[in-house]
């Protein structure tokens, strides 16, 4: 066994043990057939291919073949929700306080959050005109800008949106990075349509002169409504796809539960505080504790669902060798 073969075999640890026992000779043999003379290391593309193949095989062994298509569907819904919120907040950002009111602002905008919201709008536009890598890069940039807004606001001393407004788009953005690069036009148009709908809703709701707003009260209304709509759409899709024996929709619901929970941090924390002390509004520590609980539960939910699914799967008997009839 030469060094290259040993290195390919090491990478096969990405696969489940029984699959490795059955198929490692065949897979490594094919890699070696394809490797040019003098190659000593697997290429980065080979490493990515083996890790991806191993992950798929582990999901297949757990009976969760539909998980990755479900995550891709969730990514589109997450991106659509994030761009709806960005459209809504972008209009709110223009409604800065009147000059001389003594309220801090960020240039013509209410806060520095405007930068992040415009980045999300760019991501929505790119989903329509340049799907694939440009869209993912724009989503990553928008997500990073949103995540670093509190730090930048601290450094340059300008107002920022509340943390519970910034957190959901960051989590939605992580999911949106999995968005499929080969979406049909009807799907690619969703994020920009949602952004325009969000902007129109805010423009209608907050008519000039009637309101110059800050996020708090508005966010308390909009975020839970967006979370509820996201969950309702995901459930409807899951039921509709389930009728066609397509189970990916339930994985979509599963992965979206964390962002839905974060969009509802305010009412959830309010329920906790209301139960404990009959307070009318949740306290800041309760909201932080609620967000952490939602994040931890969400992170644990998916592995638990995959493990549960694996227990329900009856292992298939290994087929005998078609040439010699031996069972390995």
């Amino acid at each position: 066994m030469n060094r290259l073969e040993r290195r390919y075999r090491r990478l096969l640890w990405a696969y489940p043990a029984n699959y490795r026992r059955e198929r490692s000779e065949e897979i490594v043999g094919t890699y070696l057939d394809l490797a040019g003379p003098g190659r000593r290391w697997p290429s980065p593309a080979d490493v990515a291919d083996l890790v991806r193949g191993g992950l798929r095989q582990r999901l297949r062994a757990a009976g969760a073949n539909d998980l990755l298509p479900g995550v891709r569907l969730a990514a589109l819904l997450a991106l659509t929700t994030a761009t709806f919120l960005a459209g809504f907040w972008a209009v709110l950002e223009w409604q800065s306080p009147p000059a001389g009111a003594g309220v801090p602002a960020f240039g013509p905008f209410v806060s520095i959050g405007a930068v992040a919201w415009f980045a999300w709008l760019l991501a929505a536009l790119l989903t329509l005109v340049a799907p694939g890598r440009p869209t993912r890069a724009a989503v990553a940039a928008a997500m990073l800008l949103t995540a670093t807004t509190p730090l930048v606001s601290l450094v340059i001393d300008v107002p920022r949106p509340p943390l519970y407004v910034l957190l959901p788009p960051v989590v939605l953005g992580v999911l949106a990075l999995a968005v499929d690069g080969r979406l049909p036009l009807a799907a690619r148009v969703l994020p920009i349509t949602a952004a325009l709908a969000g902007a129109s809703l805010d423009a209608f709701w907050n008519r000039p002169g009637a309101y110059w707003g800050w996020y708090n009260w508005t966010a308390e209304q909009v975020l839970p409504a967006a979370g509820g709509a996201l969950l309702a759409v995901a459930l409807l899709l899951a039921v509709g796809l389930g009728i066609r024996r397509d189970r990916r929709g339930w994985w979509t619901v599963m992965v979206l539960l964390t962002p839905v929970g974060l969009l509802n941090v305010h009412p959830l924390a309010g329920a906790v505080d209301g139960l404990a002390s009959a307070a009318t509004r949740p306290t800041y520590p309760t909201m932080v504790a609620t967000a952490i609980t939602v994040g931890l539960l969400g992170a644990a939910l998916l592995p638990a669902a995959v493990a549960l699914r694996r227990r329900q799967v009856v292992p298939e008997p290994v087929a005998p060798c078609p040439t010699c009839g031996a069972h390995r």
Partner: peptide, 12 residues
């Protein structure tokens, strides 16, 4: 096609 992708497709 790379082998990891090919064998995944053949399994499916």
């Amino acid at each position: 096609l790379r082998p990891g992708t090919l064998y995944g497709a053949l399994d499916r």
